[in-house]
């Protein structure tokens, strides 16, 4: 299924907002929620692993490029693509319970922080386990509020026949 222009536009706007919104967060928050993974998870839950990976790739590229960006260029894109593909794989269980999308999205956030923790353990970069846990906790909290809205947007796009 090739996404149409309105879908690409809507997701680009959502991803841009998700990447730029942390600028507005008050400084000194213990964990910064990862909003990008929620946008990726919403798309992945509605359309499956391939679309999830594509949206993840786009979101990760934005995370890598928006200053101060990520190091090296493209690593964030690959890690978000992996998270998108894995969340998309959980789509088949989505009808089982309304909690499944939330669990899948938090799982995506865990995957991303796990990659970060593993590279740090391998000696590249600095990541404290406590910070990683806080980030997942903040993302899980935000997912309760934001994920239903994002899935609603995806449903709307689907109902208009654009996706």
């Amino acid at each position: 299924m090739i996404a149409t222009l309105p879908v690409i536009g809507a997701r680009t706007v959502l991803l841009l907002v998700a990447v730029l919104a942390p600028t507005l967060f008050p400084s000194g928050m213990p964990g910064r929620p990862d909003l990008v993974v929620l946008v990726v998870a919403a798309a992945a839950l509605m359309h499956g692993p391939v679309t999830g990976a594509l949206v993840g790739l786009a979101g990760g590229w934005l995370v890598d490029l928006v200053p101060p960006g990520g190091e090296p260029l493209g690593a964030g894109a690959l890690s978000y693509a992996l998270a998108g593909a894995l969340v998309g794989a959980a789509r088949r269980w989505a009808p089982a319970s309304p909690l499944v999308p939330w669990i899948a999205a938090v799982g995506g956030a865990v995957v991303i922080q796990l990659v970060r923790g593993l590279t740090a353990a391998a000696g590249v970069g600095v990541a404290h386990p406590v910070d990683l846990l806080w980030s997942v906790a903040a993302t899980a909290l935000f997912a309760l509020l934001v994920l239903p809205v994002l899935i609603g947007v995806e449903r709307f796009l689907l109902s208009r026949g654009w996706a």
């Binding site: 990862d34 928006v66 978000y80």
Partner: peptide
């Protein structure tokens, strides 16, 4: 801008 806490290589950078 603060560095995202979700890139694979953890760094501490601000803009």
């Amino acid at each position: 801008g603060f560095s995202s806490g979700s890139t694979p290589v953890g760094g501490r950078t601000v803009t």
